[in-house]
Deep mutational scan, measured.
Amino acid sequence: NITNLCPFDEVFNATRFASVYAWNRKRISNCVADYSVLYNFAPFFAFKCYGVSPTKLNDLCFTNVYADSFVIRGNEVSQIAPGQTGNIADYNYKLPDDFTGCVIAWNSNKLDSKVGGNYNYLYRLFRKSNLKPFERDISTEIYQAGNKPCNGVAGFNCYFPLRSYGFRPTYGVGHQPYRVVVLSFELLHAPATVCGPKKST
């Protein structure tokens, strides 16, 4: 009989979020998941679920829940969905086509923008091939755009693969920082350890 609540607040209220190319993952297990707390949290810009209804989450049990978190621009949030393409979905964070879970995003301009620009948040701009679902690539190898080998030196046709967002408070909404948490639900042939409040007695 599990009684402790799942530590969703640790994920959602973290002081610093990860850059999207180096997205953070927390495994959540052996706890009671009260999703209504999240669902009623006012400032969400997006709360979209795939393969599961957000209002039914509290009735369900899962083997594991993974909480992935990172920061992207407002106009990139739409790429955090199954079957998407674009710089983020291709080179930074890719969801599987059969994704079961929820994508939760909110504007973090007050936290993550600075006058003069916040350059701490990076994304991958160049990559030889697209990421596989949930693949994480933190390499900083110089990207070779031409035929000539770069030998690890940036220059003509040789690019550092990461780019900084440089968030400023005055940017338009599409270019403002958004914090994103992706909850993915794993249902294995194993005992369920993460259940909603109704199922955990």
Rank of each mutant, 00 (worst) to 15 (best):
149 P>D: 14
200 S>V: 14
162 L>K: 03
191 P>N: 14
159 Y>N: 00
154 A>F: 04
105 A>E: 01
119 Y>D: 08
8 F>C: 03
67 A>N: 00
126 F>S: 03
141 E>M: 10
177 P>S: 06
44 F>M: 11
36 S>A: 11
142 I>N: 03
88 I>M: 05
139 S>N: 11
49 C>L: 02
187 L>I: 14
129 S>G: 14
34 D>G: 06
188 L>Y: 15
158 C>S: 02
196 G>R: 12
65 V>E: 02
49 C>M: 03
54 P>T: 10
61 C>A: 11
80 I>C: 01
128 K>Q: 12
137 D>P: 03
96 P>L: 03
113 S>V: 01
112 D>T: 02
147 N>C: 07
103 V>T: 05
111 L>R: 13
78 S>H: 12
156 F>I: 09
127 R>W: 02
91 Y>L: 07
135 E>I: 05
30 N>C: 07
125 L>R: 04
171 Y>L: 00
51 G>L: 05
133 P>L: 03
150 C>L: 00
34 D>R: 08
59 D>N: 13
114 K>F: 10
154 A>Y: 04
32 V>K: 11
95 L>T: 04
172 G>C: 01
86 G>D: 01
15 T>C: 05
31 C>Q: 07
176 Q>L: 04
35 Y>C: 07
124 R>T: 00
53 S>V: 11
165 Y>W: 03
3 T>L: 09
173 V>N: 11
109 N>K: 09
166 G>E: 01
105 A>T: 11
198 K>C: 11
109 N>G: 06
85 T>W: 09
14 A>S: 10
15 T>I: 09
23 W>N: 01
24 N>A: 11
12 F>H: 03
108 S>F: 02
4 N>G: 12
96 P>G: 09
20 V>Q: 00
74 G>Q: 06
70 F>Y: 03
88 I>Q: 02
21 Y>R: 02
56 K>D: 13
73 R>L: 04
111 L>H: 12
25 R>W: 02
102 C>P: 02
44 F>P: 13
201 T>H: 14
40 N>C: 06
161 P>N: 04
94 K>E: 00
116 G>C: 04
186 E>G: 11
111 L>Q: 14
123 Y>Q: 10
173 V>E: 13
104 I>W: 13
72 I>Y: 01
139 S>G: 14
116 G>P: 09
48 K>L: 05
160 F>S: 13
36 S>R: 13
41 F>I: 11
68 D>E: 03
79 Q>M: 05
48 K>F: 05
169 P>V: 04
5 L>S: 13
165 Y>M: 05
168 R>Q: 06
153 V>W: 09
115 V>F: 10
173 V>Y: 13
123 Y>H: 12
26 K>R: 15
155 G>K: 08
13 N>P: 03
190 A>P: 13
166 G>D: 01
165 Y>P: 04
94 K>T: 00
71 V>C: 06
199 K>D: 13
111 L>N: 11
132 K>H: 11
162 L>C: 04
147 N>A: 07
136 R>F: 05
184 S>L: 08
125 L>W: 15
65 V>F: 09
40 N>Q: 14
67 A>S: 04
39 Y>V: 11
147 N>E: 07
3 T>C: 09
127 R>A: 07
80 I>R: 02
26 K>T: 14
125 L>D: 01
24 N>C: 08
174 G>R: 06
71 V>P: 00
35 Y>Q: 08
138 I>K: 11
106 W>Y: 11
46 A>T: 15
14 A>M: 09
77 V>G: 02
69 S>W: 05
56 K>Y: 07
22 A>F: 08
20 V>M: 01
44 F>Q: 12
176 Q>W: 02
161 P>H: 03
55 T>N: 14
101 G>S: 01
17 F>Y: 08
101 G>V: 03
152 G>I: 05
178 Y>V: 15
32 V>S: 09
189 H>C: 08
38 L>R: 04
35 Y>W: 15
70 F>K: 01
21 Y>C: 05
143 Y>D: 00
73 R>D: 08
134 F>T: 08
169 P>R: 06
177 P>E: 00
53 S>Y: 09
157 N>C: 02
92 N>V: 01
23 W>D: 00
121 Y>T: 05
191 P>A: 13
186 E>I: 07
150 C>I: 01
74 G>D: 00
34 D>P: 07
109 N>P: 02
177 P>Q: 01
